[in-house]
């Protein structure tokens, strides 16, 4: 069964025809070629497919594309505005929060959402906020550092 859907992705409106059983992850990667969205486990454990759905982080492997009709999606591509990386994207690079890079876009999205609801998280809150994102390379320490630094940058930015 096919569905005609209208959705906003990274600020642009799209009209797509999608199969009922295709996940949002599949639609984003294969129909819109937004390949920052990664397929890790397909089971909601690893978080590599995390995107924002109406501003809230979700595992796009467990959402149907047809559910996104009338909704707004943001992927890691959408956090970069006029070539300017979002603070969390920049600090992940600067502080070595990324190695092989596969989990990085998902971690960036989950961290971005965490900082929206809690601009000044403790280490414990950062770790809890990222429980749904697995990384096999970094050992997490530098990811936590990157989130803390992004939080600091965003706070100083706001007081400027």
């Amino acid at each position: 069964m096919k569905h005609d859907i209208n959705l906003t992705v990274n600020g642009e409106l799209y009209n797509l025809t999608v199969e009922s059983h295709h996940t949002l992850l599949t639609i984003l990667r294969e129909q819109l070629v937004l390949t920052s969205v990664k397929n890790g486990c397909s089971e909601g454990e690893c978080g590599a497919c995390t995107v924002l759905f109406d501003g809230k982080p979700v595992n796009s492997c467990l959402v149907l594309g047809a559910e996104a009709d009338g909704h707004e999606i943001v992927t890691a591509e959408g956090l970069t505005i006029n070539g300017q990386l979002a603070p969390i994207q920049q600090t992940m690079i600067d502080l070595g929060g990324t190695q092989c890079g596969y989990c990085t876009p998902g971690i960036v999205m989950a961290s971005f959402a965490l900082l929206e609801r809690n601009p000044n998280p403790t280490e414990q809150e950062i770790r809890e906020g990222l429980v749904g994102n697995l990384c096999r390379c970094t050992g997490y320490t530098r990811i936590v550092d990157a989130v803390r630094e992004a939080a600091r940058l965003q706070r100083t930015d706001m007081t400027l």
Partner: peptide, 9 residues
Amino acid sequence: VASYQLRNR
């Protein structure tokens, strides 16, 4: 339950 992302669904 699970993670923040999962609890949004």
